[in-house]
Computed example of a mutant assay.
Amino acid sequence: MVLKIFFFFFFFALFHLFFQYKIFLNLLLTFELLSLLVYIICMYLGGMSLSVVSFHVCNMVLCFGVIESVMGLALLILCSRSSSEKHVSCFSFLKF
C-alpha cells in the first residue's frame, strides 16, 4: 500500500516538474515533494529491515530535505528582490 502511494506521488511530482517548470516556486515545491518521498521510502524500507542504521540514514535524508528547502527559499528571495519577477527565465544570471 505504501509503495502504491509512493509511486502515485512520484509520478505526480515528475508530471508537475515537466509541465510547471516555468515558475520557480513550483520547482521548489516539487523538489520538496521528491525529498519527502525519498524519506518515506527510506522509512518504509528501514522499518522492514529493522536496522538502526537505516533510521539514522532517514534522519540524514530529512536534514538534507530541510537544507534544500532553506537554500531554495533563500535563492527565491534573493532573485525576486533583484528582479521582481517570479519566472525561472529571470534566474538565468545564476548560470546553472
Rank of each mutant, 00 (worst) to 15 (best):
M1S: 12
V2M: 09
L3M: 11
L3T: 11
K4L: 15
I5E: 06
F6R: 04
F6I: 09
F6M: 08
F7P: 00
F8I: 11
F8Q: 03
F9Y: 04
F9C: 07
F10L: 14
F10D: 01
F10G: 00
F10A: 06
F10Q: 06
F11I: 12
A13V: 06
A13L: 05
A13E: 01
A13S: 10
F15G: 05
H16F: 12
H16T: 10
H16L: 11
H16E: 04
L17C: 05
L17E: 02
L17F: 07
F18V: 09
Y21N: 07
Y21I: 07
K22T: 13
K22C: 10
I23G: 05
N26M: 13
L27S: 02
L27M: 04
L28D: 01
L28C: 07
L29Q: 02
T30Y: 00
T30D: 05
T30S: 06
F31H: 05
F31W: 09
F31Q: 01
F31R: 04
E32T: 08
E32C: 07
L33G: 00
L33V: 11
L33T: 09
S35E: 05
L36Y: 04
L36K: 08
L36F: 10
L37H: 00
L37Y: 01
V38C: 05
V38K: 04
Y39E: 03
Y39N: 05
I40H: 00
I40E: 03
I40T: 09
I41Q: 08
I41H: 01
C42G: 02
C42A: 10
C42K: 06
C42R: 05
M43A: 06
M43G: 02
Y44D: 00
Y44F: 08
Y44V: 03
L45I: 13
G46A: 05
G46D: 00
G47K: 03
M48S: 09
S49A: 09
S49E: 06
L50C: 06
L50R: 02
L50S: 02
L50V: 03
V52P: 03
S54D: 06
H56Q: 08
H56Y: 07
H56N: 03
H56V: 06
V57W: 01
V57G: 01
N59A: 11
N59W: 13
M60C: 10
V61H: 03
V61G: 00
L62K: 03
L62N: 03
L62G: 01
C63W: 10
C63T: 08
C63F: 14
G65E: 02
G65N: 08
V66F: 15
I67C: 07
S69D: 07
V70Q: 01
M71W: 14
M71N: 06
M71S: 10
G72Q: 06
L73W: 11
A74S: 12
A74K: 13
L75Q: 10
I77A: 13
I77K: 12
I77Q: 12
C79Y: 08
C79M: 13
C79R: 12
C79P: 00
S80Q: 15
S80M: 14
R81D: 13
S82E: 11
S83Q: 11
S83V: 14
S83K: 14
S84F: 15
K86V: 15
K86N: 13
H87W: 10
H87V: 13
H87A: 13
H87C: 13
H87P: 03
H87F: 12
V88M: 13
V88G: 01
S89C: 11
S89G: 07
F91P: 00
F91M: 08
F93A: 13
F93K: 12
K95I: 14
F96E: 08
